[in-house]
Every structure is written in structure tokens, then in C-alpha cells.
Design a binder for these strands. Structure first.
Lengths: 119, 119
DNA sequence: AATCGTTATGAACAACAAAACATAACGTGT
DNA sequence: ACACGTTATGTTTTGTTGTTCATAACGATT
């Protein structure tokens, strides 16, 4: 009686900084991948994105937040360079992850037709 | 200690039908406006959108859901035509509104740094 | 110093979304 | 029968977003 059809819910959540988007699902995947690969190039490949896109994405975030979220080095040790998340980058990522978890919890509550406390 | 900076949260929620988006904030505003104006043209104007866009939007939703969400007539009574929501359209709109309310409630809970029950 | 894989950046290009423009059809009320 | 405001639809234009290509700079390792 409360569920009409086979409709499903979807939602997105993201963190903003002074009204501008900071990190959402896409950004989280990118940061995650950079953390895993220690390389922007590898991360982009792993995600099937262009390096350019990822790089622009990072710069946009950094411009918005006003501090670096990745730390890079050129010519390095094993590879020829690399990248890793800064403290800011890491905390941004984990902050988003937590939210995402909460959100999907919220969604499945709704999906079960739950009413929770109304007032 | 739990809030890092002046970051804020934003989120979107929408209803899908077999994986395809049915109605979100944009669609709700359109339906709402049509209900208020009894005219697609007026609704589009009121929202600062082109008639074309609104009309395409409606058609896309109708194609997805498989039934009409607006009922239109040409040449009519006062104006020269008009439109109103079908039963489906109305229920879709109110379904979304309810969700939106829940979502913003959820967001403000998060904003207050609330933890709710963890398990 | 030559090499290699990476960062870094500019520029051209493609794909898609949205807006703008143009017109036909419709039918009630005059 | 005419006029008017609306629905309905095709076409063109613009704008945004992401991809591709091209190229320079870097520096540890060899």
C-alpha cells in the first residue's frame, strides 16, 4: 500500500567548500585509486579515465579547498615519478566514505518502507 | 574534533524506474509548476526554462515510466490549451517531495555531527 | 650523460546536453 | 470564419564536458 510500483531510489552525496563541490563519488574513486597505485597515471588507467581528466579534477579540488590533496614527485626511484595523498587528501577521502556508508544505510531504510520517528 | 573545516554537505535523491531516472529535483519543480499554472508554457516561463526543454523532459519521463504524467488539451476554454498532471504525475511528485524532506532531515542530522545508533 | 616513466600543461577534437528558433496543428470563444 | 494562446515537433546553435594528441620537464637509476 505504500510502495506503488517497482521504483527504486538513488542518491548522491558530496562535500562542499563554500558552496563549491569538493568531493563526491567520482573524486573519491580517484583519490582511492591514487592511494592504491601511488601514481596518477596508473590511477587514471585503472579507472579508465584520461590522465588529463584526473589531473584537472585534482587541480579543481585543490583550487576549491585551497590546499594540495596530492603530493607528487617527478623522476623518482622505481618508476620515474609518482603521487600520494596528502593528509588533507586522505581525510577528505575517509570523510566521504563515511558519508557514503551513512547514505546507503539511509537509502535501504527508505527502501524497506520504514517510517522511523515522524516527529 | 569531528568537524574538520567549514565543509558542508549536499545530496540529491531521485526515483528510478528500471535503473533509469524518473524524477528528481528538476522534474519535481517542473511537475509542481505545471500543476500550479495548468500550462506547460507558463510553467516553463515561471521556471526560466524553454518550453522545448520541459516538453522533452516530460516525454522522457513518460517514456521511462510507460504512462502519461501530464494530460494536455489544445485550443481549450480560457487560454487556448493547457495541461494538468495525471494521477501518476501527482503521485510521482508527492512521492518525491516526501523523499526530499527525509533527505534534508538526514542531512541536517549529519550536519549536527550526530552519530545515531551505529549498529 | 643517456634512458625511462612519470608529472605537468597546452591545444584540438568529439560527444553530449541544453537553449534558441521556427512552424504546424488545434479548437474554444468571439 | 477568424483570432489567439496553447500544444507539439523539427532543426539549428551554443555551451559544457571529457578525450585525445602533442610536448616539455624532471630526476633517480643505469
Amino acid at each position: 500500500m505504500s510502495n506503488h510500483k517497482k521504483h527504486t531510489l538513488s542518491a548522491k552525496i558530496w562535500i562542499e567548500h563554500e558552496g563549491k563541490p569538493l568531493i563526491g563519488k567520482g573524486g573519491a574513486e580517484i583519490l582511492q585509486s591514487i592511494a592504491a597505485e601511488n601514481s596518477i597515471t596508473k590511477a587514471a588507467e585503472a579507472l579508465g579515465m584520461s590522465y588529463r581528466y584526473v589531473w584537472n579534477y585534482l587541480k579543481k579540488i585543490e583550487k576549491t579547498i585551497g590546499e594540495p590533496i596530492v603530493e607528487t614527485y617527478k623522476g623518482g626511484k622505481a618508476g620515474g615519478g609518482g603521487a600520494k595523498l596528502t593528509k588533507t587528501g586522505k581525510s577528505l577521502l575517509s570523510e566521504y566514505k563515511r558519508l557514503e556508508t551513512c547514505l546507503s544505510e539511509f537509502l535501504s531504510e527508505k527502501k524497506t518502507g520504514n517510517k522511523q520517528k515522524p516527529g
